[in-house]
């Protein structure tokens, strides 16, 4: 059940995954950015972990804590983008004590829309939007096919991973990588990669909680 307990488990798993892949994210960002994405995100998720003691009633409350903490600890481009994403997700989740498949798809779409509203990137600009967009599309499709929440998340995560991989041939048009012009081609976008990591953890903890 995608309740507050799942949300907590997911945040913990995401924190562990970001910590584990920190150097990989740094390296991706070093090549086409400034090499801080892994460090910043790790600092952010560690700060979230330190605040997870509270009792949460709804997944929305967890999303909100996540949003506010990432917003104030991560910095850089990713901080406000993830912050806005999870703030919108919290609003979309509302008072629901657990998310059904429909609600889940709405939450994912709200997160993606928040990133787009904030960063003004379009699909194909080689940003985290290129992981979020296929994830939202896959989630919608899974809902249409009547799948369970954990199946919806599994589909979304797989699509995000594919989306991250698919950023490799793109030329960046937003964010720091855009300064590189054609030289950004051939490298994976770090924000898309971290999106994939985070959604993968959402799916695996959802399956555990199912």
């Amino acid at each position: 059940m995608l309740d507050s307990e799942w949300a907590v488990a997911w945040v913990k798993a995401a924190a562990a995954s970001v910590a584990e892949h920190k150097m990989e994210l740094i390296e991706l960002d070093r090549v086409i950015g400034d090499g801080d994405h892994g460090e910043n995100l790790d600092r952010g998720f560690q700060a979230v972990l330190a605040k997870l003691e509270t009792n949460f009633e709804t997944p929305g409350e967890v999303f909100k804590l996540l949003a506010m903490t990432l917003m104030s600890v991560v910095g850089g481009a990713a901080g406000p983008l993830y912050g806005t994403a999870f703030l919108r997700a919290a609003t979309a989740a509302g008072e629901a004590s657990a998310l059904n498949s429909d609600q889940l798809a709405t939450v994912l779409a709200a997160a993606r829309d928040g990133i787009v509203a904030r960063g003004k990137a379009e699909p194909g600009d080689k940003t985290m939007v290129d992981a979020w967009t296929p994830a939202v599309e896959a989630a919608d499709e899974a809902v249409e096919n009547g799948l369970s929440p954990e199946e919806v998340l599994t589909a979304a995560a797989a699509a995000a991973e594919q989306g991250a991989t698919d950023t490799e041939p793109l030329q960046a048009r937003k964010g720091r990588a855009s300064y590189l012009g054609e030289r950004s081609i051939g490298h994976r976008d770090p924000g898309a990669q971290s999106t994939a990591l985070i959604l993968r953890c959402a799916a695996s903890t959802a399956r555990d909680a199912a």
Partner: peptide
Amino acid sequence: PGAVFTSPTPD
């Protein structure tokens, strides 16, 4: 001042 090469946060 933010972290090295990382913009500071609103807070």
